[in-house]
Design a binder for these strands. Structure first.
Length: 570
RNA sequence: CGGGGAGUGGCGCAGUCUGGUAGCGCACCCGGCUGGGGGCCGGGCGGUCGCAGGUUCAAAUCCUGUCUCCCCGACCA
């Protein structure tokens, strides 16, 4: 179906009233997708062609990397999810069948694939291998948003590797990383891979593949040779100009108490004492979920706590202390500090132990000036702050950029094989858990990212590899006209040499056809009108940049010339 | 879950405050003109105003409840 007159392509002049993200607006306007409920989207024919382009690229590269394609169900028994402890996740949709049996709608397929492998694999001779499928995932998201960027139902390519040991996993992981590089390179997207948090998935290592764009929900810290999710990024802090010199710094005597009535925030203290925010110490009382208990985390006043880094570097869960605990252990909230506190202090790496700071005095309406870590309080070091733009890595300042996560790779280890009993016998007859990895890609996010990255004021501009059709022919003139006949001829010739072609043969005006073509974003547009017939040439416009091809393309032998031009497009 | 906003022909909106014959633009259908950037003229089709209950002689409009959708935040294997 490649005649526009017969294609269901409901384009709109106006974006949905409440849409914000570029991809949301344009994918709806261009007739690619339609919404049926919050976070629930249908792919219309043109949009589905793009999705299938992405799927095919992924399939080819994962096959080449040794992945074996299969298919697992979305509807699954609850039992394996109970065994892995994931049945209680809020995002997991649960239901019952007519007999009252508990079922879930899978949000990913570790439980299923691992259950099968547990039944099938007996010996080290059965390993290694990797499996994958493209399948719908269901997630009861707290807040779907931005069109197809974050939905409750979506298709994912999820792959799983099964190895005898960590070394095998590492080899598989590296192979998948290389395959991912090829996949994202082929899509034509701007992308990079970053270190990422292993999250609640557990495991020992993870990378995310990011496509930078304004609608992205992730923040990535970037510097030459460095890219990390802000969730886990570390960097050298920017220095703070501490002037004038603070009392007590390097000198005799302890900190000096100053009256700071009502100054409960960094901002207020900073202004009152005329000390930059970075010259303050911010004390964050927490309760760690192990023998450490009540603890104060101290970061520079101009820095923010990174809760994920804190959790990872503590190696334990924690919660903010409540006001009663703070008063009992330290003093009035707003005036707490590490000096004189009889609780453990974790000092962020960015705090200079030789410098003098302002900190809360653990006394209402008072702060201490000239507080020097080490001299005035004992501490252990921790890296717990969120990096800021301008911090440096190996001397290079970082920037922080919004990005969409389009893929990820995880070293799972035995997180799923142990609870589900996926084991094998090694050469010595010893039973060992299978070592696993998991690897996801969201094709819909790749589609949306491509829209976001290359759209202009006229509409979408697909990378050649993802476009729903290679070439669009705009046929001007009435039905039955010579122009339309010539367009039909060109259409057949292009198809004959293997290009996919969308022919706009609708009885519409030229303005409407050109506008729709630019909205839909096919990389190359050929126009056949009266002028073309008179000059023997089709006008050609490259969508990216809306560049007209000088002189057009001679209709005589046009197919080869078009194919040649098409291969040069982005 | 917290905060904000919105439900009126297919789409985008006005009307609601101050109750009194449901409107506009686009799209769509028919006829004609036009034919290289959303063109013009004429004639049409299409809406239980999200849903339920209430107040009233009278409800899109006031009251109560409820459902749905969007945005910000929290959350996000």
């Amino acid at each position: 179906m490649t005649r526009l007159s017969q294609l269901l392509l409901p384009t709109e002049r106006e974006p949905p009233a409440d849409a914000e993200a570029i991809s949301h607006k344009l994918m709806v306007r261009a007739g690619l997708v339609r919404q049926i409920g919050t976070g629930l989207w249908s792919w219309l024919p043109a949009g589905w062609r793009v999705h299938q382009k992405v799927v095919q690229i992924i399939r080819e590269e994962i096959d080449a990397a040794g992945g074996q394609e299969m298919l697992m169900p979305v509807l699954q028994p609850a039992d394996p999810w109970r065994k892995t402890g994931r049945y209680d996740i809020d995002e997991l949709l649960k239901l019952k069948d007519r007999k009252g049996a508990d079922l879930v709608l899978a949000m990913t397929h570790e439980e299923c694939v691992t259950s099968h492998v547990a039944q099938v694999v007996r010996s080290y001779r059965d390993l290694p291998f990797s499996l994958y499928h493209f399948q719908v995932k269901e997630r009861d998201e707290p807040r779907p948003r931005a069109g197809v960027l974050r939905t409750r139902e979506f298709i994912m390519k999820d792959a799983y590797t099964f190895d005898r040991d960590e070394a095998g996993l590492q080899a598989h992981y590296d192979a998948y990383a290389a395959a991912y590089d090829r996949i994202f390179e082929r899509t034509g997207l701007e992308w990079y891979s970053v270190e990422s948090d292993v999250g609640m998935m557990g495991g020992s290592g993870a990378h995310e593949y990011m496509a930078p764009c304004p609608a992205g929900e992730n923040e990535v810290a970037l510097a030459p040779g460095y890219a990390a999710n802000v969730e886990v990024a570390s960097a050298d802090p920017q220095p703070v100009a501490l002037a004038p010199p603070l009392p007590g710094v390097g000198g005799v005597g302890g900190p000096e108490s100053v009256h700071t009535p009502g100054a409960t925030t960094v901002d207020a203290v900073s202004r009152l004492l005329e000390v930059p925010a970075g010259g303050l110490l911010k004390s964050l009382p927490i309760v760690i979920d192990d023998e450490r208990g009540f603890t104060v985390v101290v970061v520079r006043g101009d820095h923010r706590l990174n809760e994920i880094k804190l959790t990872n570097n503590l190696g334990a869960a924690w919660r903010p202390a409540n006001p009663d605990e703070i008063v009992a252990k330290l003093g009035p909230p707003g005036f707490i500090g590490p000096v004189g506190a009889s609780v453990p202090v974790l000092l962020d790496d960015a705090v200079d132990a030789e410098a003098g700071y302002v900190a809360g005095a653990n006394q209402a309406d008072h702060h201490l000036r000239g507080v020097r870590p080490g001299r005035d309080f004992d501490f252990e070091r921790i890296d717990a702050r969120r990096v800021e733009a301008g911090d440096t890595v190996a001397g290079h300042p970082i920037t922080i950029q919004a990005a969409i996560e389009v893929g990820n790779i995880f070293q799972l280890g035995t997180r799923y094989s142990e609870p589900l009993g996926a084991t094998y016998l090694d050469e010595e007859g010893v039973q060992r858990p299978i070592v696993m990895g998991s690897y996801g890609i969201g094709p819909a996010r790749i589609v949306a990212a491509a829209v976001e990255q290359f759209a202009d004021e006229k509409g979408i501009s697909w990378p050649r590899a993802l476009a729903p059709w290679d070439v669009e022919i705009v046929a001007l003139g009435k039905p039955g006209s010579d122009e339309l006949a010539a367009a039909e001829g060109l259409y057949r010739d292009l198809r004959a040499i293997g290009l996919s072609v969308l022919l706009d043969d609708r009885p519409a005006g030229p303005g409407a056809k050109f506008a729709d073509a630019e909205l839909l974003g096919i990389p190359l547009r050929l126009t056949i009108g009266r002028r073309s017939l008179e000059s023997g040439r089709a006008e050609a416009q490259i969508r990216r940049g809306l560049q007209d091809v000088e002189g057009g393309i001679p209709l005589e032998g046009a197919a080869e010339a078009v194919a040649e031009l098409w291969r040069t497009l982005p």
